[in-house]
Amino acid sequence: MTGILARFRNLTTACLVAVLVVLVGGAFPGRAAAVDIYYFSPDSPQRNLGGLKREMERFFGQADFAANFQPFAHYIDFDQTVREKHPPFLFLPAWYYRLYGEKLGLRPLLTPLRGGSSSYRKVLLVRKGEGIAMNTLANLSMAMTTMGPDDRRTLNSILFAAHGADANKLNIVTVPKDADALLALALGHVDLALVGKQSMELIGSINPKILQAVEPMAESAPIPGPIFCYVPSRVNMEVVEQMKQLLQRQQHGLNVLEILQIDGWLAVQN
């Protein structure tokens, strides 16, 4: 009997809570549900994803724009979640857009600028004095951040084919960040490392000793930078325009450019 009464009391409490939630929700009819923004940028020097999420949500909060900013550290995790949840906004590598943009219905909105450019370069590094040349790369191991499922084709087009080499003959070890690739090379765990030029210079500026152990062998052609996309079927154009203006607006206090470590945006003409 006591059990039944207790259950009844629990049920009543649950109902009261539900009613309160509905009433409180009704008291703020203008408050929209938070918009999901997924972020995956393996070549960005910004690895503090917890801090990035906090600052981006604070930035959107200050503009009274309810957003759930979700950064991802790993490609698999990002790709799986995108396919399951279909977020309306995504910040992603250009290779992801090239491979899946059409299938996922992505539409480019903005592309970030770093050093005034919307593209970047990668540098192929070897340990000093190893005697490795572009024509002796077969079976060597190379550490780099992910460039997607068809990374070898991309690598040939941006770097190896121009030197008469073939990325298909390399054993690629994917690492989460450029610093890992650089350290794996410097400490002798891989034969080559392919790292973003900007990251290499940044790491070199805070720890010059690491760069002293390695030397550049070749530089890639310009690689298109990441793209900020939206999915037309998941968000109305009013919100898209609001997002675009918000990101491009220079505001006092929190600066989105500083948070994302970029120096501007380039609007993409659809």
Binding site: R47, N48, L49, G50, G51, A73, A179, L202, I206, Q261
Partner: peptide, 12 residues
């Protein structure tokens, strides 16, 4: 530490 060094951390 510099901002660049802090940003290299996965968690602060």
């Amino acid at each position: 530490p510099s901002r660049a060094a802090v940003d290299m951390a996965s968690q602060v």
